[in-house]
Write a protein that binds this DNA or RNA. Structure first.
Lengths: 332, 332
DNA sequence: AACGTTTTCGACAACGGTTTCGAAACGCTA
DNA sequence: TAGCGTTTCGAAACCGTTGTCGAAAACGTT
């Protein structure tokens, strides 16, 4: 059912149908009513694709995630909640998990979708620094570090300080850090917070106890095992994300170590899974839904060409993190 | 940067560039190399929209959800996991929460996206029964009851029987049922299971204790309050989804009733939130990720015109449910 | 050198809409 | 009724890409 079909049925031209559909001025009330009737009757709906190709406006915002893992899913929920009422619709596009090997997939997806299918985009944990694309873009928690893009992120350093201070306050001194891959900004900042807090407390950081965990279960178990099998085993591990913290607890169990009896573990993110872990994970909460909300607000401003954000070019919103104490930590 | 720009830069026609991009036969190796170079240099990426408009093939599967609530989010994760390796990409489209008032939004979205932007669609909890659209469609857990669409759902009746038997086994006899809105198939089936189990145990169902909860916090608290303020209060409530079960526990707290001390509560779905509840909710687990996986398999078969599914027209996959006992239920 | 084959490439017409612009019909005044 | 402004509508161009098809060029053969 195309617009031409409707036009033929209504005895008018396609142009007129288009005007009726889009409420354009210049069609008589009689005609509008008649065409509306036909549209209703046959259940015509205009093709988003064809429409956008010509008009370059779709009222759709794209959210690009590498894959639908817990973190990005929470972000999506936040953006979805914030978007209703703005007149836009949300379209989530997944890179299909090939983000690791396929650097720059964001840029590619953006140019495939941008300018025609979506009016603006939210990039979740993008690995690109700049994206001079066809449409306004906001980045959430960019992996690649400070960029020229408008950005929403959480206070990683502060969160890491809180987590480390929590462990120190429980009497731990020999604390290991399990980070993400090198080059990930969030991991760098969390390590920075960790080192800051350790230094402030006068606790030494053993280089042997700082490892790359890679944020994923598969990549984290190896390093976690090395940490826990260390001759001078740490009494606590601060993992830079929940997934690797949970993996660490799994390794501990395998080695016959009790958490939190023999080992305290702190994570980062507070994904829904963290509370399901055994024991429930003490972690640093990122306001993921709020981050999504902020990103939408920022993006809508940008798309409207809001003047207040224009001068400095890139706007940066940083939201607070907080410590959530659960069952995986205990006084030494 | 359009294909025409690239063509001009490379000194060839747009048609030739298109052939290079799509690896079509009939371009000399020299030309291919040259055009590839130009494309690489300027970072050209073909527009998904324009391409699909013409070729009617996008290798994109759409998943349509009314909104990004916990249930649909889990389904999305399942589909996303299953889709990698099939050569398709996933695009999640949200109706923006206006599903309640906007009946048939699925059909509309389908005709807006189908045939041009997506090659097939997965509908999550659709309210339409038939959708004779342009593309193959699979429905997950349709709200509207048995349809002619290929469907993936969970065994609602069996799950409800399990939940009710659990309560009966704990000695409860006066059990309330808090359902969804009338007309929702899942709610109907869960009530059916509830009544079956009650009847089998010879326990009477008090019509006064069967209420419409509406599956949402806002709609569930009222009926929940009525149940708990009843002169002859039930000792247990079986809520037809987790959200209303959690709402019921909130009402109980307000009324000074302890769960599970004074009242046992069972939910349905096992959304991630159910374990966060205080106390953690005993519930019936739907294999949400598996449902997503099955839907993708079914859809891909359909899109390939797999002959084995063609004969009967509609294929129905039903996955098992199971009881997850946590802290919200106790022997009477 | 003449001729048939095969390759290589580009002009052109779609795809399903929107937008512009001019012509026709209409309404109003003088 | 002539003159003029205003509505109303449709023809045609366009958005960025792909598929078809014919012409030109290159190649191979005698």
């Amino acid at each position: 059912m195309t617009i031409t079909d409707v036009a033929r049925l209504a005895g008018v031209s396609a142009a007129t149908v288009s005007k009726v559909v889009n409420g354009r001025y210049g069609v008589s009330a009689r005609t509008v009513e008649h065409v509306r009737g036909v549209i209703e009757e046959v259940g015509y709906e205009s093709s988003l694709v064809a429409r956008s190709l010509r008009s370059h406006r779709t009222n759709v915002i794209g959210i690009l995630v590498a894959e639908f893992e817990p973190f990005s899913t929470e972000i999506i929920k936040g953006t979805a909640a914030a978007i209703s009422g703005t007149g836009y619709e949300l379209l989530a596009y997944s890179g299909g998990g090939r983000a690791e090997e396929d650097a720059g997939w964001e840029r590619r997806s953006l140019s495939r979708l941008g300018g025609t299918l979506i009016d603006g985009a939210i990039l979740v944990t993008p690995t690109v620094v700049g994206a001079a694309g066809a449409v306004p873009v906001v980045a959430i928690d960019p992996h690649a570090g400070p960029s020229d893009l408008p950005t929403v992120d959480a206070d990683n350093v502060r969160g890491a300080v809180l987590a480390t201070e929590h462990l120190l306050g429980l009497g731990h001194r020999r604390i290991a850090f399990l980070g993400g891959r090198p080059g990930l900004e969030s991991s760098r900042l969390r390590e920075e917070g960790f080192r800051t807090a350790m230094a402030a407390a006068g606790a030494p950081v053993d280089p042997d106890l700082v490892r790359v965990g890679g944020y994923r279960p598969q990549t984290a178990t190896g390093p976690a095992h090395e940490l826990l099998a260390h001759p001078d085993r740490p009494s606590a591990v601060f993992a830079a994300n929940d997934v690797s913290a949970i993996a660490t607890m799994g390794v501990a169990r395998e080695l016959g170590l009790s958490v939190p009896g023999d080992l305290s573990v702190v994570g980062f993110d507070n994904v829904p899974e963290s509370v399901l872990a055994e024991p429930p994970l003490t972690t640093v909460s990122q306001p993921m839904q709020a981050m999504g909300t902020s990103a939408v607000q920022l993006l809508v401003q940008l798309m409207n060409g809001s003047p207040e954000t224009a001068p400095d070019g890139g706007t940066h919103v940083r939201l607070p993190t907080e410590l959530v104490v659960r069952g995986s930590t205990r006084a030494l």
